[in-house]
Amino acid sequence: MPELVVPTVRLHAAWLEARGDWGPGIHEDGFGLRPDDEVDSPAGFAAWVARLTEAAGRATSLSADRALCEYRWIVDGDRVLGGIALRHGLNEIVQQRGHIGYGIRPAARRQGLATWALGRMLDEARRLGLGGVLIICAVDNLASARTIERCGGVLEDIRETDLGTARRYWIMLA
């Protein structure tokens, strides 16, 4: 049975296995991984996990427009199946990337995990008092578009973002 867990160093090997499933250089949505994060060593991985868990508690000092963000990993036992993030507020980062971003490792796709995890994060957004969430996916990512639509997403438009051409959906939570 899958569950959402706060990022933890305990799952270092499992996370590396999941990253290997994606392949080198592929962006893993929902994990908050930056190009300068070094995650192969235990120390680097621990520093990255600390940054992720601190992001939920306070704004980062890197940029005034950074959103508070909660990261969760989608796990089943000791297997990391994906990641999902919920950004608070409505600033420039949220306008470009959405309130929620997620990714499922290739070997775990087509099992309903994205829909399940998105539903759980929508519940968290409701608890935070958000009236609606913006979710953005690449224009050619039809699987993600279907996931968002299954969870109530209504297409606002298709436009250029800092990550390329994207579909922009709103899910109202009230």
Rank of each mutant, 00 (worst) to 15 (best):
M1L: 00
P2M: 04
P7C: 01
A18P: 01
G20A: 03
W22H: 05
G25W: 07
H27W: 06
D29H: 05
F31Q: 06
R34S: 11
P35Q: 08
D36W: 06
E38N: 13
E38T: 14
V39G: 09
D40R: 09
S41K: 12
A43K: 11
V49A: 11
E54I: 09
A56V: 10
A59G: 12
D65Q: 15
D65P: 09
R66M: 15
A67Y: 09
E70K: 05
W73G: 05
V75I: 14
V75S: 12
D76R: 08
D76M: 12
G77W: 09
G77S: 14
G77A: 14
R79T: 13
R79K: 15
G82L: 14
G83S: 11
G89K: 13
E92R: 14
E92V: 11
V94E: 06
V94L: 06
Q96M: 08
H99I: 08
H99F: 04
I100V: 14
G101F: 03
G103S: 07
I104A: 04
R109W: 05
R110I: 04
G112R: 04
L118G: 00
R120N: 04
D123N: 01
E124R: 07
A125F: 01
G129L: 04
L130R: 02
L134Y: 02
I135L: 07
I136G: 01
C137M: 00
A143L: 06
S144A: 08
S144F: 00
S144I: 02
R146K: 12
E149A: 15
G153T: 04
G153S: 08
V154F: 10
V154W: 11
D157I: 01
L163Y: 03
G164N: 08
T165P: 06
A166T: 07
Y169V: 03
W170N: 03
